[in-house]
Design a protein around this nucleic acid. Structure first.
Length: 287
DNA sequence: CCTACGACAGCTAATGCCGG
DNA sequence: CCGGCATTAGCTGTCGTAGG
């Protein structure tokens, strides 16, 4: 009858369920949305040239980390699915990623990897005067302060999107594995970003690194596939409009409202029915 | 060596609670 | 209702270290 209590002083869960060490999210959703808000249309157009215009529509200012943790725990690497007991399975694949983020799904593999030659050739151009890679927060500040929207801006924006949304790690800095991608700027829109983001998440989860990878996709994919017919959105600005990509309609308040209704226990969800799974419908409904 | 990342600390805004 | 206080959630930093 007593609901699970938390330690008043520390906010940690009660002794007994040692639960997990606090998961630390390094990719600040808040910083991302603040930056986008400040960008002029000129500079947002740069994202469109790379096929990333949907990212400029993101309205969700925060992440609800518990649901991301939970999805990480129920992920089954062998089948590449999130297995929700008694509810169904949600695939982690290119289609679902496309439905959430709407990023390019081209034929070129995203060249994410260390390449010292390319890095050396490009570094000074991107970060003149710096000895080593700046923190991601510094990169965000510099993007916000830039007024031009040429190739340097484009490269920095892409690097930031990779660090903050597509493939965040627990590091404070963008990965130097980004450079080969920036070096091939013209082909960015022909790269398969959906596959890249999915594979990055899969590899992280396979290795039980639940804090890495695109948490925005996890959260939005999940709320977007629930049956919301009984949800009351009147307190949070109304029902999210119909949409092409899940990234555009959802606000943090709408996400929170849905997840509050869906929460089963302290650390688990699935109270609501999964109604449809993005464009995949029946595929995910069998147990 | 360097890189990635875990442990830990501290900050702020949002949220919850309570007495008026 | 409302204002003040306590707690929580989310974010950012430093530091140490395992492992390439």
């Amino acid at each position: 009858m007593d609901p699970p209590q938390r330690n008043r002083a520390t906010g940690r869960r009660k002794e007994g369920d040692e639960k997990k060490k606090r998961v630390r999210n390094r990719a600040s959703q808040e910083r991302l949305t603040l930056l986008i808000e400040k960008l002029t249309d000129d500079r947002k157009g740069v994202a469109a040239e790379m096929g990333m215009q949907a990212l400029m529509d993101v309205r969700c200012t925060n992440l609800v980390n518990p649901v991301c943790d939970w999805l990480g725990e129920i992920y089954e690497p062998a089948s590449r699915e999130f297995v929700i007991p008694g509810r169904g399975r949600l695939p982690l694949n290119e289609e679902s990623m496309f439905c959430t983020l709407g990023v390019p799904r081209g034929h070129i593999k995203v060249p994410y990897g260390v390449n010292n030659e390319i890095e050396e050739a490009m570094f000074a151009c991107l970060f003149p005067g710096l000895e080593s890679m700046p923190n991601t927060s510094v990169l965000a500040d510099s993007l916000q302060a830039m007024t031009m929207h040429g190739d340097v801006f484009k490269m920095k924006l892409l690097m930031y999107l990779i660090s903050a949304v597509f493939a965040p790690t627990t590091s404070l800095r963008p990965s130097n594995k980004c450079f080969p991608i920036l070096a091939n700027l013209k082909n960015v829109k022909n790269m398969n970003w959906c596959k890249f983001i999915v594979d990055f998440l899969h590899d992280a989860f396979k290795n039980k690194m639940y804090q890495k990878g695109c948490r925005l996709h996890l959260m939005l994919m999940y709320v977007d596939c629930l049956d919301l017919s009984t949800m009351d959105f009147s307190g949070v600005g109304g029902r999210p409009p119909t949409h092409k990509f899940a990234i555009s309609p959802w606000t943090i308040n709408a996400v929170k409202a849905v997840l509050a209704a869906d929460r089963a226990t302290d650390t688990t969800y699935w109270k609501l029915q999964v109604s449809f799974c993005l464009s995949l419908h029946t595929a995910c409904l069998q147990i």
